[in-house]
Amino acid sequence: MTPLGGYLLVAALMFAIGLAGALVRRNAIMVLIGIELMLNSANLNFIAFWRYGTHPEALTGMMFAIFSIAVAAAEAAVGLGLVIAIYRHTHTTELDKINRMKG
C-alpha cells in the first residue's frame, strides 16, 4: 500500500462514517455533523492527490480544498440557522417528527 492509498482509504472510511451518521441519526443537527464529516473526507482526498500527484506547484488540489472549506462553512451556517428556525416553529429537531410541510 502506497502512502496515497492509505490516505484515500482513511478518507473513504470517514466518508462512510459521515454517511452512516447522516442516514442513521434522528436529530437534524447530527445529520449536519455527518455532512460535515463527508465534506472533510473529500477535502482530504483533494490534499492527498495534490501532495502525491504530478505538478503540485500548480496548486489545483490545494485551491479546491480551500474553496471547498469556505463553501462548507457557508453551508454549516445556513443549515444550522434552518435547524434553529424549524425548532422555533415545531419545538423539535427530531427528523421523523417533522413530517408536515405546511407547519
Partner: peptide, 22 residues
C-alpha cells in the same frame, strides 16, 4: 432512542459505499 427506525438500511448503505470505494 437516537437512531432512526430504519438504521439498519443506513448502515448497510454506508457499508456498501465504503466497500465500493475501498
Amino acid at each position: 432512542g437516537v437512531f432512526s427506525p430504519t438504521w439498519l438500511t443506513g448502515v448497510a448503505i454506508a457499508s456498501a459505499v465504503f466497500a465500493v470505494m475501498g
